[in-house]
Design a protein around this nucleic acid. Structure first.
Lengths: 156, 156
DNA sequence: TATTGTTATACTCTATAACTATA
DNA sequence: TATAGTTATAGAGTATAACAATA
């Protein structure tokens, strides 16, 4: 568990690339928070992540959502209250086992996330427009490696 | 304000790359939150961003910090209370104008952020280890474009 | 008087525990 | 009894407004 690029350049201080990557991620995170602050209606970061989790895995239940967000079950339930009140999410009793609740996004929720994505994209564009086109194509290849991340949620 | 890659590939659906980039950023943000949840002592995301802001611009005052975080002045002050109580930050009256307060990181604060960076790096490494070395070097070049971002704080 | 920052109060969000409903 | 989720209460965090201190 040595981190980014630990074994790639033995002659060079291996921390250089790692630091660069971490700094870049911090910039991206800052950009993300900025976009989240802009979007309407105001949904706190945790709410955004909840919506994204539901988009990624439709018909998620509340327990799974709580695990995804690393919060308690009541917190996730309350969060769903607010997202549902805002019209971004809906709770549907699961046929077959009526204890479970399926979370599904509303059209408004989809538009909301799309809007957020566009704002983020615009801000990223401001940074990436400086890149020559072939660099951008390489970036595209690069980003594919993030599409299937090693499951972030492996509990010990 | 068309966003990422809007004009690069006229034949291709231009939203594809944009969507891919935004998804990747979402993954990175999720990774960031996971690392933030792990680190000790527990500091909420806003506290992390505050510490990073102070690291980036040492001797920041409280007003500037509030602007960086896009929160009110009292909120920033309270946040400093907690970070100071945790021993991660210190307030120093500025010589010359004793109204202002300079925020400086403690050694503990520096170690804290370093620890966070290592955890993030380790998690990123898990994703990036799959990349061949030359791809990683290209990534390094790419990330340089994020080092000097167009000022995120331009209010309309 | 203008600027920098802190305190006062109410409100929102989160966490732990107790409770309801279904299986 | 075990599981999925909700409500109860208390505590942490945030925002708006009033305040204190320095220039």
């Amino acid at each position: 568990m040595r981190g980014v690029g630990a074994a790639s350049c033995p002659d060079e201080p291996s921390g250089a690339l790692a630091r660069q990557i971490v700094d870049a991620v911090d910039q991206l995170v800052a950009l993300w928070f900025t976009a989240v602050d802009e979007v309407s209606p105001r949904v706190p970061p945790r709410g955004i992540r909840a919506l994204q989790a539901v988009r990624r895995r439709p018909a998620l239940n509340v327990t799974a959502l709580a695990e995804q967000l690393d919060v308690g079950l009541p917190t996730a339930s309350r969060l769903c209250d607010r997202l549902e009140a805002a019209g971004l999410l809906e709770r549907c009793a699961r046929p077959g086992d009526r204890r479970e609740v399926h979370l599904v996004m509303t059209d408004r929720g989809r538009r909301f996330l799309a809007d957020l994505g566009e704002r983020l994209s615009a801000r990223l564009g401001g940074v990436l427009d400086g890149l020559p086109p072939e660099r951008r194509l390489l970036l595209e290849e690069m980003l594919r490696s993030f599409q299937e991340p090693p499951d972030t949620r492996r509990a010990p």
